[in-house]
Design a protein around this nucleic acid. Structure first.
Lengths: 215, 215, 215, 215
DNA sequence: TATGAATGAGGGTTCATTCAT
DNA sequence: TATGAATGAACCCTCATTCAT
């Protein structure tokens, strides 16, 4: 699961991928910088050449994960399709994304708590530190904005379907939460070696929810 | 060197409840014994009069949470009802349980990873320690057994409904996972101050899933 | 959050020597990692860069002490000398060793109890931890083997002397224990500032015992 | 090894004996009040009805051990016997004492370091505390006086023997230390289940040393 | 870039000790 | 007397982070 860059120089990307993997297995708090470093054959100290600190690395992982899914979801929403087709494709995209990239998917979901903790900038903060901390806050805000967009896209398609009569009238907020809960959970129980492929699982879940929505 | 300004003696139960709350908010790794102690006006050291260690306390929280829900689910399953009624009631019981006792419910869900880590007995292991460690392992095994039962009950009712024609043919494993994922997630987004009550949310979710299942 | 006011980088060897000194003065249980660290101008945390844990450090101290003495005793035994000359030289070597290196010598003697406590591997035991713990057990076993050899060498020379008529017939086990007890005790009462030098003391003790043995 | 007073009230004596046993096995620092309490079926808290604190208990153990041996040694010294007979009996008395009461004997020897640490009275010391602390200091001083006497008695007999020509001229200080070291060590290696009885061991050791001394 | 050495801050845990019951 | 509950202090150890090389 851990990339081994053949003793070559390690890229930012390599670290993010490896970190995502470790994070998904252990959770943020239980994952040490040493763990992540080991996964790319580095020392913990070396990671600081690539990321300002642990939070910054976590954020990079989450950004990567979210961007990946968002990149697949967005075009569907803005495509010209009936609402049920849209939702069906979105569900599949999300679920497949989680199964294909368990690491990124689950990390995105489970570690938000850690990012949410508002941490003050280090007490001994020079001007430069303050600047870089502000940068971090900005990136974090951007992440949450993206996350809101993600949720919003689902809610939007559902609302749209309800309005145009494709779906029966449901509370779009509750339905979206229900949907996303089920999706996120896949990262917990899915095993690549399991009986069913990610595609099959995704198809089944899409069917469950669409039948529940059908007008 | 030892005062006791405590208003009243604190019971094991008190600690479990407080711990559940803190655990849900912060997660296992991020929760310190001091945090939990503070929540019941004690010192961290005092907690060790009631629980052997942090793991043991976590386990107690999870046991309490699981037992609570299981106590509500079991009678429904063994009642004489049509499959869809059963499932409807089970979903409501679970979701309402989570909303009423967010702490216990969510703790049960999110911290399994911590319990799963196989840990060796403490380093300074006398015979007595080993014995109590064995006890812990037993309790942990019992917890997982109960957890399996919990899942099994849902799966069982679904399978039953499929067989007697109440439900359309679905993969009961995947459906159960989908269901439970959605339920567990409630602990994340539900806010008592929200627009809808736990009962209303539960009813909605039950409807979603039952419509998705109807033959 | 990490300064380095240290004059010079500290070597493993430095720590072992300092630790031996502290250990001899305070005993294992009463010696804290902080004590040892202070003796080499480090923080307790820094010691963990050089030794996995306190036990490992203790073992290193004992190994060093034992190896030092063993290195002086062995050649004497395998030399071609009359038994009484051998024993005389061995006694002197041991006693002088203890006086010259009180720290190492006494540590070797007094802390065996701590090492004897069979301890299970650390609680948070990953596979890697288990491996390194196995290593520790191996080293510990090797230490006890060396210790047995040490005792055996004395017993062997005594037995040999009895058999070739140099010594009167004594119980070699009891005599060895008597001898070693007296030697080890030197670490307790010897003061470099005392009336007699280590060499003088050693010579006197050798004389006592050899007269007691003479056929 | 631990007295079990049949669930009856426990006497000061019982505790001292049990404590001696535990102390010998574990050493002072590693022995907890709970350990000692458990050996007499009590709670740690209960011990404080019998002893002011741990140090006080340790001191009581050492006093008991020392008094026992001293009581056997003194009469021999002041008896009217040739020096060699005296010394022979003293050696036997000491060694047999150690083997018969391993606990008391060894505790006496090995834990002096703990008593030696000069501890200041507790910072929060009321007048009463100060008084009882002064008492403790007095008792401790008395103990060390007794200990000096013990050593002095041996040295005295040796010197006497040298002066009256029974023994060859040896340094009585060094010889006494050698003697006592060997004796004390017996507490470490003697096992009641061993090949030889305490009496036999004592006789052998006496012979070794007396031959070494004979004029 | 990469790392070994170092460190401050804490976290879990133990322990001697106190006190109300 | 005995004890359960509580606590402050201290200990071992880990970890994110820094810095000189």
């Amino acid at each position: 699961m851990a990339r081994k860059p053949a003793d070559q120089s390690v890229s930012r990307e390599d670290i993010i991928l490896a970190a995502a993997d470790v994070l998904q297995r252990k959770g943020y708090e239980a994952t040490t910088m040493k763990d992540i470093a080991a996964a790319v054959n580095l020392t913990a100290a070396s990671l600081y050449h690539h990321f300002r600190n642990k939070d910054s690395l976590l954020l990079a992982v989450m950004e990567a994960g979210l961007e990946l899914i968002l990149g697949r979801i967005r075009p569907i929403v803005y495509d010209d399709l009936p609402s049920d087709h849209k939702l069906q494709q979105m569900i599949c995209a999300h679920v497949i994304g989680v199964t294909q990239n368990t690491a990124v998917g689950a990390a995105m979901v489970f570690e938000i708590r850690s990012l949410l903790d508002v941490k003050s900038p280090p007490a001994t903060a020079s001007t430069a530190d303050h600047q870089s901390y502000a940068e971090f806050l900005e990136r974090r805000a951007a992440f949450f904005t993206a996350r809101d967009e993600f949720e919003y896209l689902f809610r939007q398609v559902i609302r749209e379907g309800v309005q145009n009569g494709t779906f029966r009238p449901v509370d779009d907020g509750i339905f979206t939460n229900t949907l996303l809960g089920a999706h996120n959970w896949v990262g917990i129980w899915y095993k690549p070696s399991g009986r069913l492929s990610g595609d099959e699982i995704a198809a089944m879940m899409a069917e469950f929810f669409l039948r529940g929505l059908k007008a």
